[in-house]
Design a protein around this nucleic acid. Structure first.
Lengths: 288, 288
DNA sequence: TCCATTGAATGGGTGATCCATTTAATAATT
DNA sequence: AATTATTAAATGGATCACCCATTCAATGGA
């Protein structure tokens, strides 16, 4: 009613989303000691409420992977919100890897198995936004991989080692045939397999997230310069042998020195190593 | 009208989002060897396109934290999409911590400084969905913290140590006054400070993400049983002393043994340690 | 000078409507 | 009887046209 308050039904008379506007009760001390600041409320919006409710059902185990949510039209009515705003919530959850939306009759919103690649995207966003630096990422990767070697030596199974072996064979083949970019893909896969061989999916997720970005740089470097790591497969074999022998010290040393030489390669011609070119586009093997 | 195809303009004659339907080129071997599967395309939707474009601008450095996107109505027109679908995209980016939407004239969509808490939510979702287990998380946390101790010994600065000292004082106070739940908040903060003292935000982010969940369990345990770790502040002091002396071995040993005793505490009365109760609600100190 | 009022810009939200895809049921054809 | 088109319904995808609530600069009166 900016001008004349036209005599029109207020149309806001629906079911009234449970706790929507009455939000004064939301201030809470939140800290361990006296907290004199009173800022961070920023009124709850319906889509947030919806996301939270669905996540809550999930955490409570009421919703499990494979389950289907009611159809948009129906769920919107149940929640007493418009279909549009419900979709905003569903979209967010879909982007978060929690849901998958499927069209057609028998379609709907299905709870997904968690997608560990979500963490890669977080890492990528943090880098894009300048919250973390490439240096920090590389450094963290070195440390984390060191940890991975320890765990892999302790926990890797026969099947894990076999998978690594097979990967090295593909690397050799790609080298022979001069498919340098494919070889980068092999490297990506190598670290993924190595991470998996720790037997801990949390660790694996972390490793993947820092490696994914790193590999973008390697990919960009190889693609632009044509140079590539010498004796790669051979080094991998030595490393795998150490791993198979459960020789932490040796495996750790080998990997570390390899990482250092890769780092040197990347740091040649530093101008070309733009953060932006490496992050800008989706590259092979990184499909969402 | 569902039956007879009324003679109406098809209304789909807008600018036509650049590469929307022509996605046949999207099949690609993606792996290092033959890939006979042809599944994973699932037609690109406009909101995904929009998200990707904005992220691209971000990665390219065209958009930086602090920048403001055009108003919804205008941006929608520029992109040739409806405002609603644009909002779905903005919502997703907001949930991802990339944007913040602000109301009012002079409001708009502002690029944010990256929010490192995003990773916590990923971890939480993975746990809710059963992709990772509590055991894996605890295990990973122990290993990662071990790494953190090494890095903190090497890199912690005076200010970091002072912050930890101040935290311990708060812990003591809370202990004296019997505020057990506040003390849990202190613990959360302690690990956050410890993580920060490594000087590496990637590591810090990782530590925070595994610690946040862990602390929910501790919180739930303390809240329900009233029991709490004995001699906590004292142990913290010993640890901090070791850290200040840059004594990796000692600090590492102290932390490890503390983590083990906490773990034992949590594992008493295992039935009560439901994943669901710990994850279900937002607890103090975890406000988004 | 100071404070209340106004009004425009902006995000938040609604409801109706249409399109495109998918699937099951049905009818037509062989 | 088996196969193949056709039809119809359900569902997500998307659009349009509004309205509401908040914010803030400009305006104007005390």
């Amino acid at each position: 009613m900016s001008t004349k308050s036209s005599p029109r039904a207020p149309q806001r008379s629906r079911i009234a989303p449970p706790n929507r506007r009455e939000r004064a009760s939301d201030l809470r001390a939140a800290g361990a000691s006296a907290a004199p600041t009173f800022k961070p409320i920023h009124t709850r919006r319906t889509f947030e409420e919806i996301c939270e409710r669905i996540r809550e059902q999930l955490a409570l185990g009421v919703l499990k992977p494979g389950d289907k949510l009611p159809a948009e039209r129906e769920l919107a009515q149940q929640l007493g919100v418009s279909r549009n705003v419900l979709r905003e919530a569903l979209r967010s959850l879909e982007m978060a890897g929690v849901l998958r939306l499927q069209k057609g009759v028998k379609g709907g919103a299905f709870i997904q198995q968690g997608d560990t690649r979500r963490m890669n995207e977080v890492m990528r966003d943090m880098l894009s936004l300048g919250t973390i630096s490439v240096r920090e990422l590389s450094e963290a990767r070195v440390h984390v991989l060191d940890l991975v070697v320890q765990l892999a030596c302790a926990n890797a199974r026969r099947a894990d080692l076999d998978a690594l072996e097979a990967n090295i064979e593909r690397t050799e083949l790609a080298t022979k045939e001069g498919r340098l970019l494919d070889r980068v893909e092999c490297s990506r896969e190598f670290y993924k397999l190595l991470a998996a061989s720790t037997g801990n999916k949390v660790i694996a997720m972390i490793v993947d997230s820092v490696t994914e970005i790193h590999m973008r740089f390697v990919y960009a470097k190889v693609a632009s310069s044509g140079v590539a790591m010498a004796r790669l497969a051979e080094k991998r074999r030595q490393f795998l042998a150490a791993l198979s022998e459960r020789d932490v010290a040796l495996a750790s040393r080998l990997l570390r020195s390899h990482l250092e030489s890769v780092q040197r390669m990347l740091e040649q011609d530093p101008g070309a190593m733009s953060l932006h070119v490496a992050l800008a586009d989706v590259q092979p093997g990184m499909r969402r």
